[in-house]
Simulated scan of single mutants.
Amino acid sequence: MAKCTGNFMMKKDAVFIYSKEQLGYSFSDSHPFNQKRIVLTLDLLKKSGAITDSDIIAPRIATDDELLLAHDAKFIDIVKRAGKGEIKETAGEMYGIGTEDTPIFPNMHEASAMLVGGTLTAVDEVMSGRARHALNLGGGLHHGFKGRASGFCVYNDSSVAIKYIQQKYGARVLYIDTDAHHGDGVQWSFYDDPDVCTLSIHETGRYLFPGTGSVTERGNGKGYGTSFNFPIDAFTEDESFLEVYRTAFKEVTEYFKPDVILTQNGADAHYFDPLTHLYGTINIFHEIPRLAREMANKYCEGRWIAVGGGGYDIWRVVPRAWAHLWIAMNGIDAPTGPLPAEWVKRWQSESPVPLVETWEDPVPLYKPIPRKEEITEKNAQMLEQALHLIREKRESC
């Protein structure tokens, strides 16, 4: 723990935002977006001895005025009424709710505003100097738009949080999104804003929702050159994914020079994930937060806020992947070997699949990819194209 500059209070390395109220964001028992993954992750951290109750801070609910930073009043009103059963699903469809992806559920507004409030709680902990880093696994709903829900996401906590940071703290924000799905809602919210830089590494939209995120989406007007997209090929493996991630993160951070970094940490780039086509292993989720911490310490005096996101194998993948976020935030060496036997015993009876009982994935996890060299080369060419503006400027200096 480090001493805060200018006072005698001790600054925590990291805080973990959580309360049971976050579990109220639930579309149905059969819906793929299942917040039980937060419970599984927190329990894994506790049984590993990596977190204590003193590290946990309860989220608050976002106010309407805060939601209005990134959402239309009419949309907020529709969400409120839908959660009270006052509108039919057909009436909500034009606002993206009452659909197969984003069904209406009781108290939808309150549950959604709680997830946003969790990210705002994380923001205040970091930006006020009480903690260097903060983690809100309940956040990361990056598909929400100003006046429409989309892709399991009602309110967009990251968009609200970035506007909140700008308004309250006057800071330049770098948003990094490693979810397998393009971070479209956040990108479009700040597409013409030169003080917010968005970077999304995702599976190409050729076969995957939402179908956006081309390298040619670079921003608009004064915001041109502050939107970066890295669409990787289906079946991309660890080495290629991490080469894109490391190179993109380092070059964009050096170029933009943010005051704070906000990362969205979907865990759906893993081979086991049922909704995507990437061939990542747990190794990428070990590396992703460690580079984020390094970049935040180098450029932002440690200011790093992390949120959750996608991740639909909630038993074999998400708890291990998200545990690495907290472990990295606290500078703890990455765990290896068996998971805590007590955790495995507690949850195996509920899991519909055999749990992975080690921090590492089984080897081999899958059969060799015959197109590995082709995919790797294609991703390398994409990386060069996506970063050419930065590299041209660097070479001209």
Rank of each mutant, 00 (worst) to 15 (best):
C197T: 15
H324T: 10
P319H: 06
A248T: 07
A234Y: 09
A292F: 04
T336D: 14
Y18G: 12
H270D: 07
Y207V: 12
N297M: 08
H277W: 13
I56Y: 14
T276A: 09
F105M: 04
Y279P: 04
Y191H: 15
V39T: 08
W315D: 02
G83R: 06
S112I: 02
T376W: 08
G221L: 15
V356H: 09
P370A: 06
K46I: 11
E373R: 12
V317T: 10
K11W: 00
L389K: 07
V356K: 10
L68R: 15
L383C: 07
W347G: 03
A180T: 05
A328W: 01
I332A: 08
E125C: 13
T41N: 04
M108A: 08
C153G: 01
T52A: 14
L339M: 05
G49F: 02
A2M: 10
S227D: 13
A269P: 06
P354Y: 03
T102E: 05
E239A: 13
K88Q: 11
F249A: 15
G211M: 11
K74M: 09
G170A: 05
D124M: 02
L389F: 09
A341D: 14
R371D: 15
Y312I: 09
S158N: 11
D268W: 01
I176A: 12
E217K: 07
F152S: 01
E301A: 14
D29E: 09
K298L: 13
G147M: 04
F209K: 02
R218Y: 13
G308I: 01
Y155R: 00
E100D: 13
L115H: 07
H182C: 05
L339P: 08
G280E: 07
H71P: 08
L365W: 06
L325Q: 14
V356C: 11
V186Q: 00
L387E: 01
E21D: 15
T52S: 15
S227P: 03
A149Y: 07
I78R: 10
E301K: 15
L67W: 00
T253V: 09
H286C: 10
A269N: 11
N297F: 05
Y18M: 12
G219D: 04
E374L: 12
G139L: 02
G311P: 12
E239I: 10
A70Y: 02
I332Q: 13
S214V: 08
A180S: 14
S349I: 15
R218V: 15
C397W: 10
N156R: 01
M94G: 10
A134F: 01
V154D: 01
W343G: 03
D124K: 00
E66A: 05
T99D: 07
S349L: 10
K11F: 01
C300I: 04
S189Y: 04
D333W: 03
I176W: 05
T247W: 04
A50H: 15
